[in-house]
């Protein structure tokens, strides 16, 4: 069984994340303690709340640096929904607030021509050299998104009022705009690939 530290960032509704990752074979440990998180083999930043509140929570606890160090060390890292957006430089959701900056990108809102929030299952298409991401339907619940995959990253694209970034991957870093924990069997298979629990079926 792979142990996984999930970062508590405030108003997070962690029950679905915990249940989904447990089904995928992880032993889930929820923490907001930077010292404990720094020891994690697998680290996960869940997706809840608004951009500004999320960054404030990470900065207040020092978890922002823990995340950057974890990724620098090449260890498995998973970000979901707002978690992906917090990796960027900035977002229309909370102008003036600086993100983690791991991705050289700005997060914008979906255009007025489509339903917002995007609620539901969107078919996603991985880029040529993606290894974790596979084609399929993923479940989204978001109002903001990236429109281009940053240089140096593989990923997957979806379509909602134009192309948008459904997920990004590089080495053992996986950032999903969708919710793998709510994406049924397809999402479970993705989580298992990231966790390295494909064959254990625990």
């Amino acid at each position: 069984m792979t142990s996984l530290h999930v970062l508590r960032t405030g108003v997070a509704n962690l029950a679905s994340v915990r249940a989904g990752l447990t089904r995928a074979g992880a032993e889930v440990i929820v923490t907001d303690d930077p010292a404990e998180a720094a020891e994690a083999t697998h680290l996960m930043l869940p997706g809840v709340g608004a951009f500004g509140a999320g960054m404030a929570a990470l900065r207040a606890t020092g978890l922002d640096q823990v995340i950057l160090d974890h990724v620098d060390a090449g260890k498995p890292f998973l970000a979901i929904c707002l978690g992906l957006q917090l990796l960027c430089r900035s977002s229309d959701e909370t102008p003036g607030v600086e993100g983690l900056g791991l991705l050289d990108a700005h997060v914008g809102r979906f255009p007025d021509t489509v339903r917002v929030p995007q609620f539901g299952w969107n078919r996603i298409r991985p880029t040529a050299h993606a290894t974790l991401l596979q084609p399929g339907h993923a479940y989204f619940a978001n109002s903001y998104r990236l429109t281009r995959i940053p240089p140096g990253w593989e990923g997957a694209m979806g379509e909602h009022g134009g192309p948008f970034v459904a997920a990004l991957e590089r080495d053992r870093v996986l950032a999903c705009q969708f919710h793998p924990e709510l994406s049924s069997d397809w999402g479970q298979a993705l989580l298992r690939r990231w966790l390295g629990t494909e064959d254990t079926r625990c």
């Binding site: 509704n13 029950a15 479940y139 619940a141 709510l182 049924s184 069997d185 999402g187 479970q188």
Partner: peptide
């Protein structure tokens, strides 16, 4: 493993928090 909406008898933020903690999305 799919999204769950829960309704019925929710009158306050605390009612909602209890159901979200239990696993509603």
């Amino acid at each position: 493993g799919i999204p769950l909406t829960v309704g019925g008898g929710i009158r306050a933020v605390e009612d909602a928090a209890r159901l979200l903690d239990a696993g509603a999305d």
